[in-house]
């Protein structure tokens, strides 16, 4: 079988193909009428990972999470959680905890009553366990207050607490830090890291790329209902060709020189009237600089561009969208 690659042609981390995946989907699809919310999604989440599930709005992240948690039935494909097909997920009992989208609770009940009520549906739960999770999310002091009086951040923390109560092996969280203030976000980050250190697998969707880069061991990027990149966070950022910015006397000439260089091909673009950014696999900044100088371009400054998850994400999503537009255009012509 050919090795799986991401949209940029990088091989997917082989560890993701191990049999003991916490989540695995193959060709997972969901249609709402004529709309394909998820379209053949292949995803592998290794056990013990803190997995960031990224994608633009409408990419299919929430629908995927809803299918994994049994809220939505897939139209096609397979999905398994902790080795159990989603259709039989009830046999997992409390081994999976989930927070799907905005946390919703019974506003007329207290946090304690909400937790107690929801915990009872996952199995017998000791009072001490409820106290523990409330302490973990910092809500002990307000546990007897009606949830209707809670702030958004408090509800968010209660949402994480309800997912933690049954001591799950896998935690599925949809935007857990959404709406939190910086302190709250830092607390959630620390909490997730410590839970991961305790051996939990955490699968979280998020738009907060800086947070994901700091905390997640693995990421997947989804666009138009399909996974377009997945792997270890560090590996994915390292694997991509690093960029270098050159301040030059003639950016137009610089682009011509770089375009005319011997293979491997160099990707280059003008950033402003004095700067070009270039990247090529297997070529470092010194080599690119030498090509420019040999071509008669005066280089006055060379700056390596640090590759962030944000830049990787934007590039990956943009490529996926362009590719999809190209495919649509080709099919349109073929059909004409």
């Amino acid at each position: 079988m050919a090795a799986e690659t991401d949209v940029a042609g990088h091989p997917v981390d082989e560890a993701l193909e191990a049999d003991d995946a916490a989540i695995r989907t193959r060709g997972l699809s969901k249609r709402y009428g004529r709309v394909r919310a998820v379209d053949g999604l292949d995803l592998t989440v290794p056990r013990g990972s803190l997995f960031g599930f990224l994608g633009p709005n409408g990419a299919g992240k929430s629908t995927t999470i809803r299918m994994l948690t049994g809220l939505v039935r897939p139209t096609a494909g397979e999905a398994s959680v902790l080795g159990v097909p989603v259709a039989r997920r009830l046999t997992l009992g409390g081994r999976v905890g989930a927070l799907v989208e905005q946390p919703a609770f019974y506003a007329h009940l207290s946090a304690w009553q909400n937790l107690s009520l929801l915990a009872s549906l996952s199995g017998p739960t000791a009072r001490k366990r409820l106290e523990e999770v409330l302490a973990v999310v910092g809500l002990t002091a307000v546990a007897r207050r009606r949830v209707g009086t809670y702030s958004h951040g408090m509800r968010q923390r209660l949402g994480i607490a309800q997912a933690l109560v049954p001591r799950p092996e896998l935690l599925i969280l949809d935007e857990p830090a959404s709406g939190l203030d910086p302190e709250g976000m830092a607390e959630v980050r620390e909490l997730l890291t410590s839970l991961r250190d305790d051996g939990l697998t955490i699968f979280l969707s998020s738009h907060m790329l800086a947070e994901v880069e700091q905390t997640c061991t693995h990421v997947a990027v989804v666009a138009r209902g399909q996974v377009v990149a997945q792997g270890e966070t560090g590996g994915m950022l390292r694997g991509a060709a690093p960029g270098t910015r050159f301040v030059v006397d003639d950016p137009g000439r610089a682009l011509e020189v770089l375009a005319a260089a011997e293979p491997p091909a160099i990707e280059a673009e003008a950033v402003d009237e004095r700067t070009v950014e270039a990247r090529a696999k297997g070529r470092d900044a010194a080599e690119l600089n030498a090509i420019l100088v040999r071509g008669g371009v005066r280089v006055s400054e060379v700056t390596p561009v640090r590759r962030t998850l944000e830049s990787f994400y934007l590039e990956t999503v943009s490529n996926a969208v362009e590719e999809a537009a190209g495919t649509a255009g080709t099919s349109g012509r073929a059909g004409a």
């Binding site: 809803r66 948690t69 049994g70 809220l71 997920r89 009830l90 997992l92 009992g93 409390g94 989930a98 799907v100 989208e101 946390p103 919703a104 609770f105 019974y106 929801l118 549906l121 996952s122 199995g123 309800q162």
Partner: peptide, 9 residues
């Protein structure tokens, strides 16, 4: 709350 409820086993 229905989604909170129906994610229980």
């Amino acid at each position: 709350t229905l989604r909170t409820l129906l994610t229980r086993p």
